[in-house]
Design a protein around this nucleic acid. Structure first.
Lengths: 333, 333
DNA sequence: TTGTAGGCGTTATCAT
DNA sequence: ATGATAACGCCTACAA
């Protein structure tokens, strides 16, 4: 390691002609220091380029200020938007985000949480994957807060933020029926995460109420390419669907592109499509996708509010509604 | 704050019937411990759910394992991809990423670096913005490494990774001329970052060598919407351009969509377009954009290799080439 | 190989 | 309001 030499409170104290404690107090909001000494300290610190060592402070205060964000597929539009919002809110709350990428292999969520513990993170936010119960219990027992976004509901003590996926799916059926569609399909990935499966189940159930069957096709991960593959399967059937609900916008974009450029179908005339997430691309004029907007701002705000609150926090569950954004991929908006 | 109670090395030592130091050694690769005690310690740790406190360890070792990633516009395709790659490489190198969002206001890069110092980050990687020299010197002086990606060249002691933007721009002119284009335009944002301006300058210079003028149009930030606005300006001129080089793919997508859907132009027959970054959307069948692929993997690898190397590191500069990806937005690939 | 003692840079407690 | 002193949890000589 190269030589590291950060300036310490001692040096500031010496230069300002006060004690270490005075320096500490000058950097602690609400501590009892006279204005004159505070000024002396602040000036000395400025001149030396002193910054409080948060490693040491965290050790003492038993509060690191660190919040771990555990996530896979960061490069995905929806994920990266959520990430942006979370980091922003965290910073506003005086916290700092530690980003842990779980793209590689399974069980990596567990390893990520261990990392969170090692850095004594005040809280962890899980955006992807599902950790084992033993490790989340360890977190909770250690006093580390846990927020699960769009994850399953089985971790007591943690804060769950979910969308009402089933309700949303029901509205899609209504929209499709109103558009005169009758051959419904659902495009999903093989990921099988709770929220994705809830959309699928909700769609099927609502369709059944209308006396309609649903063709379900699943493939790969939740991306553009998977959408193309699913389109291939769906649009070569003898009984071609006239309406597809896609579990995510990325799937929808892939499916829409294939439908247009490979099968020469007009949208929404010959095929209605609804997506989920309202990623930026959904509004691009090549897509103009009717889709559900996740309340990303609200999710981030609620998450940060909960994890940065003082006092003992109980586990809790919050269900938010997704907004249906009408654009041009369904007839008769 | 709720009660926090992480298990410490003391407790592990007691349970394993050894001393604290034995515990420490058991978790230090290459320390001299007998296999039997190591096993005892590891088992006790496992049972108690012990994890080494990296705050304390960082304090002692003078090496936190933290690397700060300083970035704005995280939700942008190119940025988020780079972020994914960097976090992955960092984790492979045994480091952990601290993400600092500088979306708000100016001078926030300076604040971000101060944050990096407070957490005693081993290094900082700057993906956006440009810090004041005084603060980067403080970082360097404190022994914190600095990597600047696609930033300006004026920070000595830091590691600079840049693309050869001018060379790339030159190749675009060649491609346009070969496609029979003669009314060249450059679409840029008003951001004015070094790499963006280098692409612009390089394009103009290369065109001049061919005896060609370039219409330059700049607007807003580097996004899809700006591309639409620029298209508006460019395509309503009496002398409509027949080839546009866009500073980024996002601009290119916006411009292409406007050209097609608003001006009913065929691409590449009536208008050739080249972008930069090779974001995922560039390959989608609605765009099939000819563009430059940033060597993101190499950038991330080089950055992490440099910042995690032992010993004293000198400032250094690395220039990488961008690969031209031929797709369908230029005639005669 | 093992345990003991001292120190890393803070903050909190206690006098003054 | 200020300064000395004791933690916080860990690592690392040093001694055994």
């Amino acid at each position: 390691m190269s030589q590291r030499d950060f300036v310490s409170a001692d040096e500031v104290a010496r230069r300002a002609g006060v004690s270490r404690s005075a320096v500490s107090r000058a950097f602690t909001p609400g501590a009892s220091v006279s204005d004159t000494t505070r000024q002396k300290v602040l000036q000395a610190a400025e001149e030396l380029g002193y910054q409080v060592n948060h490693l040491a402070r965290g050790l003492m205060r038993n509060e690191s200020g660190i919040v771990c964000l555990i996530v896979s597929d960061v490069a995905t539009p929806y994920r990266s938007t959520l990430l942006r919002e979370l980091t922003l809110q965290l910073q506003l709350a005086g916290k700092v985000a530690m980003l842990i990428n779980t793209d590689r292999s399974d069980g990596s969520v567990n390893r990520a949480l261990e990392q969170a513990i090692r850095y004594r993170a005040d809280a962890s936010v899980i955006l992807s994957g599902l950790p084992d119960k033993s490790i989340t219990e360890l977190c909770l027992r250690s006093g580390q807060r846990l927020v699960l976004i769009n994850r399953d509901e089985d971790q007591s003590g943690a804060f769950h933020i979910n969308l009402d996926d089933r309700e949303a799916a029901g509205r899609v059926v209504t929209a499709f029926v109103r558009a005169g569609c009758s051959r419904l399909a659902f495009a999903n990935s093989e990921a099988g995460t709770p929220s994705l499966m809830a959309r699928e189940a909700g769609f099927i159930a609502a369709a059944k109420e209308q006396g309609l069957d649903v063709i379900v096709e699943r493939h790969g991960s939740t991306g553009y390419e998977a959408g193309r593959v699913v389109a291939q399967r769906l649009l070569t059937r003898k009984e071609r669907p006239d309406a597809v609900f896609c579990a995510t916008d990325l799937l929808a974009c892939g499916l829409m592109d294939a439908a247009r450029h490979q099968f020469s179908l007009s949208i929404p005339q010959q095929l209605c499509i609804v997506g989920f997430d309202d990623i930026e691309q959904a509004s691009w004029s090549s897509y103009r996708l009717t889709t559900f907007a996740q309340p990303i701002g609200a999710i981030a705000r609620e998450a940060v509010a909960w994890l940065s609150q003082g006092g003992v926090a109980d586990g809790r569950s919050l269900t938010l509604q997704a907004d249906l954004i009408w654009r041009d991929s369904v007839r008769g908006g």
